[in-house]
């Protein structure tokens, strides 16, 4: 039940397989995340390690959630722990680091439990991937469904250790990610270091505020659905405006754009460069931008005029 007068706790899921760097990402983010951060660590057998590492990063509450049976049916303990933590500690920000072999879709289902309504505000899920192993691990029969599930359900992909792969491999990785998680923002990192804070304790997402904001300090991530098809000239004009910096510094963008007469086009934006390819699958038409000092109102109005409007 929503609790009167208490804003829901901003919550992020930080997923990733063993060795990808999710604990490192959390530690990096904690350096700039501000006060009153809580981290819920759910591991099987190695809790102490991650918990200790995160605690060492600073003034942060770390709670370790012990799993019962590892199967997905017994995860009600997660919901209870999240509810107790959000109410008891009332942090400004809650980061949940599940087991490296957890399925994000299952966790998202659990975190949507009615008992957490008004208690937490799930901002999104970040999948941390190891660029060196990603192509091999993302083959369908390498692991069970957990690995691809983490990628497919990510709002933000942190492609870590990108310095350890050649350009050719990086292109293959980006193509594979575009196929698996077409709406996700992909951020390449070394040692999980980003130019700005991906996650912060800044002012809470306002009730009724549209879009998904990945951050309130440094980088901002907006994800907007398209409500109708754009003409080619409209799309070209929009891309030119984005590249000119009219809406702020857009570092990265992705999307599935409905274009009249052409169907869905997959958009890739890196800096001022853009690329459009036909998209064969079915997915929600959506534009996702990440950057700094984005002119939110201006961009929102422009997209609204083009037939895109932010999701309520």
């Amino acid at each position: 039940m929503p609790e009167e007068g208490i804003a829901p706790v901003k919550t992020w899921l930080i997923t990733g397989f063993l060795g990808a760097g999710k604990t490192t990402l959390i530690r990096e983010q904690l350096k700039t995340a501000g006060a009153r951060v809580a981290v819920l660590v759910n591991e099987f057998g190695e809790l102490g390690v991650d918990g200790a590492l995160i605690r060492a990063a600073g003034d942060v509450e770390v709670l370790e959630l012990h799993g019962g049976c590892i199967c997905c049916s017994q995860k009600e303990g997660l919901v209870q722990s999240v509810a107790a933590l959000a109410r008891g500690l009332a942090p400004n920000l809650l980061l949940i680091e599940p087991s490296g072999i957890a399925e994000t879709s299952e966790l998202l289902r659990l975190l949507a439990a009615p008992v957490l309504d008004g208690v937490i505000q799930l901002e999104g899920s970040v999948a941390v991937l190891d660029a060196e192993t990603f192509l091999a691990y993302s083959e369908p029969d390498t692991f069970g469904s957990f690995f691809l599930d983490q990628v497919q359900n990510a709002d933000v992909v942190v492609l870590n250790k990108r310095d350890l792969v050649e350009e050719g491999e990086l292109a293959c990785i980006e193509a594979r990610l575009a196929e698996l998680a077409p709406g996700a923002v992909v951020l390449g990192t070394e040692y999980c270091r980003l130019d700005g804070a991906l996650i912060s304790t800044g002012s809470r997402r306002r009730t009724g505020a549209p879009g998904r904001e990945a951050a309130l300090l440094g980088l901002t991530c907006l994800s907007l659905p398209f409500m109708g098809a754009l003409s080619r000239p409209e799309l070209s004009a929009l891309l030119a405006e984005i590249a000119s910096g009219r809406y702020g510094e857009v570092l990265r963008g992705k999307g599935l754009v409905p274009v009249a007469g052409e169907g869905l086009l997959e958009l890739q934006l890196v800096g001022s460069r853009s690329n459009l390819e036909p998209f064969a699958g079915s997915a929600e038409p959506r534009l996702t931008l990440i950057g700094r000092n984005l002119e939110r109102g201006l961009l929102s109005a422009r997209l609204g005029a083009l037939g895109a409007s932010e999701k309520p």
């Binding site: 590892i70 199967c71 997905c72 072999i101 299952e106 369908p140 029969d141 692991f143 069970g144 469904s145």
Partner: peptide, 13 residues
């Protein structure tokens, strides 16, 4: 054999 769940291992594995 819960670790043999399809969430964790593929049919080949």
């Amino acid at each position: 054999e819960p670790i043999g769940s399809a969430s964790l291992v593929s049919p080949r594995t």
